[in-house]
Design a protein around this nucleic acid. Structure first.
Lengths: 147, 147
DNA sequence: CAAATTTGTTTGCACATACAACAATATTCT
DNA sequence: AGAATATTGTTGTATGTGCAAACAAATTTG
C-alpha cells in the first residue's frame, strides 16, 4: 500500500525472537496449505512419517525427534488415531505407535505436499539460501536446547 | 540419554519449515520466561512498545509492523486494555491505540526483559551468529511475504 | 445522490502447543 | 523385599494465532 514495500530493519526484525516467529508463521502458512489438501497439518504429517519409518516408536522418542513436548505428541497421536492413520499399543508404562494400512497409504501424498512446500519456499528465497538457512537455523536450535 | 547428543541432520531438520518452527519455539520459550516475570507475553510486550513509541497507532499499522493478522492484534490489544496498559479510542472506522500512564511505566521492565532475552540466546548461539541469523531470517520473511 | 465496492476492526470458532498435575509403571537404594 | 525415586504417558487448562464471517465506515462508480 505504501511505498514502504522495502521495509527497513526495525528494532523488531533485528530481534531473533521476533524474526524467528515471523519466519515460522510465514513458512507454516505455505505448509499448512499444501498438507491441508490431504486433511493433515504439517505436524501431523511429520509425525506420521516418523511413525511409518519407525513402527513401534514411542511418544518420548517422537518428542525428541520432532522437538515437541510429550503432551503435544499425545494430542497429535490422538488426532491421527481418530483418523485411523495410526494406532497405539500400550505395554507397561510404554506406548508403541504403529501406522495403519490407511496411514501408510498417505506416504505418497505427504511426500508430494512436502516437496511442494519446499519448492514454494525455495522459489521465494532461493534454493541455496533455503538450504543454508535451514542448516544454520537448526544449528541454533541445537545450541539453544543444550543450554 | 543416548550418545545421541550430537544429533545428525535429519530429513526433518533439513526442512526449513521444521527448523523454523523449532527455532521459534526454542527462542520463544526464553522470551516468555523473561517477559513473563512482568506478566506479559512477548507479543504483548512488542505491541506495547510499539504503542508507546507511536501513540495513536491503529491495529492495521500494528498488524504490519508486528507481522500478525488484524484479528490477533485485536486480541492482544484487548488483553493489554484489560490490564490497563493501553486504551482504545474509536473514531469512524479507525481505532487509535494509546498507552496509559501505567503502560508507559512498563517501558523499563520491557527493555530489561528484552535485553535479557537477547543475552540468553546470544550466549547460547554466539553474538555474531545471532545477529547474522536474525538478518538472514528476516530477509527470508520479506521474500516470503512478497511472493 | 444511491449503489456497490473497498477498507478497517472485531467476533466466533478452531487449532497447535505448552505447563502443571496426575497416574502408572520401572528402577534404585537401603 | 519394601520404600523412595525416576520415567513415561495422559489429561485439564490456558495461550497465541489465524480464518472466515460479520459489521461499520469510507470511497468509488453509475
Amino acid at each position: 500500500m505504501k511505498a514502504d514495500v522495502e521495509k527497513p530493519v526495525t528494532r523488531f526484525s533485528a530481534c531473533l525472537m521476533f524474526s524467528a516467529n515471523a519466519l515460522a508463521r510465514a513458512i507454516t502458512a505455505i505448509g499448512e496449505e499444501e498438507f491441508g489438501r490431504f486433511g493433515l497439518s504439517y505436524s501431523h504429517a511429520y509425525l506420521l512419517i516418523e511413525v511409518i519409518e519407525s513402527p513401534g516408536i514411542t511418544p518420548t522418542q517422537l518428542s525428541n525427534s520432532l522437538y515437541l513436548t510429550p503432551s503435544t505428541i499425545t494430542r497429535l497421536i490422538e488426532k491421527l488415531e481418530q483418523k485411523r492413520l495410526v494406532k497405539r499399543e500400550a505395554e507397561g508404562k510404554n506406548t508403541f505407535v504403529y501406522p495403519t494400512a490407511e496411514g501408510m497409504d498417505m506416504t505418497g501424498a505427504i511426500r508430494t505436499a512436502w516437496e511442494r512446500t519446499g519448492e514454494r519456499y525455495m522459489s521465494a528465497i532461493g534454493e541455496e539460501q533455503a538450504h543454508a538457512l535451514a542448516k544454520q537455523v537448526f544449528r541454533a536450535v541445537r545450541a539453544l536446547e543444550s543450554e
